[in-house]
Design a protein around this nucleic acid. Sequence first.
DNA 1: TTGTAGGCGTTATCAT
DNA 2: ATGATAACGCCTACAA
Lengths: 354, 354
Amino acid sequence: MASVRSPRLADVARAAGVSLATASRALADPALVRERTRKGVLDAAAMLGYVPHGAARALATRRSRTIGAVFPPVDNPIFAGATHALAQHLAVAGYTLLLASHDYDYDAELAATRALIERGADGMVLVGLVHRPETLATLARAGIPYELTWSLDCTGRHHCVGLSHRSASIRITQHLLDLGHREIAVIAGDTAHNDRARERLDGVRDALAARGIRLPARRVVEVGFSVARGRAAFAALLERAPGFTAVIGGNDPLAIGALLECRARGIAVPDAMSIVGFDDIELAGELAPGLTTIRVPSAEIGREAGRRLLARLAGRSVPKVKTMPAPLIVRGTTGPPPHAGAKPAPARRRPAVV
Amino acid sequence: MASVRSPRLADVARAAGVSLATASRALADPALVRERTRKGVLDAAAMLGYVPHGAARALATRRSRTIGAVFPPVDNPIFAGATHALAQHLAVAGYTLLLASHDYDYDAELAATRALIERGADGMVLVGLVHRPETLATLARAGIPYELTWSLDCTGRHHCVGLSHRSASIRITQHLLDLGHREIAVIAGDTAHNDRARERLDGVRDALAARGIRLPARRVVEVGFSVARGRAAFAALLERAPGFTAVIGGNDPLAIGALLECRARGIAVPDAMSIVGFDDIELAGELAPGLTTIRVPSAEIGREAGRRLLARLAGRSVPKVKTMPAPLIVRGTTGPPPHAGAKPAPARRRPAVV
DNA sequence: TTGTAGGCGTTATCAT
DNA sequence: ATGATAACGCCTACAA
């Protein structure tokens, strides 16, 4: 009952009647020892219930077979999907995920990064482009390869896998403009602490500006990401600056909040109000009407980040920037504005997935 | 540029003009060295950008300051919340989360557990009561404290923090019975690979049996957890065994799927169909009508598991079983069945949160 | 208060 | 093919 002490390699070696070195080799590389010896060692190990001591191995090999990830709230469904995919991908390669999360707090992110480096993470996954300068510097100094995810680093200084939130945002805004909308409101995420949210908002402004339309400040509200906040924000916009015919949500939960508020108020979607989101969470496609949005392949981003990191650790080199597709998904929440002029044809001509 | 090699404690000691031991103590416990020495060491460490080597420390102290968690799909919002809360709680105590996930596959869970043990996890969090026998045995043999979460272990053999899914399920079923429902259908989770799903389904059967009602097999469908599957399952039930006035979802996404399908078919909720879920995800309260469900405090479960593990690692002992509250949340998706007899009073008398 | 030295469990470099 | 043995970087009695 009382487990005196876990067996170590020396115990296995003794039980198998070989030296420490041979036992180590037998376990590490079948080709290095005679078949008979190997079997003896394996049996002894199984018999004793031997479990290698990772820290000792890490100390000797200077590799922990561990990848660190520092994510904003992992309970955001979009990050949860990426986390899962990343962990799964690493597992098949014998790597394990060291996970830290923070609430869009860059100091916490730095602290978490330090903690993961200290734990010996062989590689690191971060979200977004904006960080404390020390964060990336520390990583670089420690010689730890890292991948920035979600966004794309146009400076070419960092490895990254993601998409241009700005241009995706331009695309979805153009979709509304093509439908004939001119009066548009935005429920943005927290642009001060989230570069994705900022890029998305900038994209809206760009697209509007390209057609000579200004986005008045009163038509923009910034909130944290959640359905409830989306509802409240939509209500606030209606109060503060009515007259818009379309709302752009900074992400799907915000857009869904707007949709629910419309339903509660009896505002017809899309006849009286068009709504678009960003991310394409599962629910977006299940609602009726379905939410028009940009699909962000979050699981693929997580997997790809893992794949690239493992490749780099194996000495292979990968292109510095990996752009993920972010298609516009047109569903039922968008249509021509009420009292729209003649034929709002463009909308119909678009395929469902652009 | 070329980072020759990361500085180690010996470098710090040399720079500070003290011995290795003193440097170690200065960093570990302020009270152990003279204030002046301490400052010298700290300065030297900062100057050199010293980062302690976790593996070496773990080897020496036999503690990794790491907690392992093996979760079913972390992208299920309910697990995502727990993961986040757990990671956050551990972080403030200087611990880090080692995360592995699997798709309700117990062999994968065992493999993941082994991987985490090998990585030196000081403690471990698992989900549910059902595991490969080796999983818990290995943990016990290695002397690693663990917490089973979500469910409650009535055998008293394991530390656990969760709730009785069976009795919660009985409560919500009784709520339907009290409203006058007699013809009930169930969209259950995968009972073969998920003890929570099984307990919930059993709870429904128990509650019905207590009133002399049988649940015919054709009124039960088992599917994986997702909104889309909930929709499809509801449609299938309607086809296969119509005539029921209430559906019980194995979790909220399933119930929401049923709700959406009702909306698509023009079935009035709750007038023609009552719907209940389980978990109380954020969306449940935002829909109109709001979803009647059981609130599972997932973030609290994650945090509590962390708290208990840290306490045990610190030598404090904790009660073996921690029961979390799982209140019935009555919202708009439940009401008396159509053509119900006289007064379906019980419903009205219940407070919103029982 | 500070220094010396042995040990934590593996891997890797030599020989043999 | 296998066996000694020296790292790996840190902690912690024990001594001074």
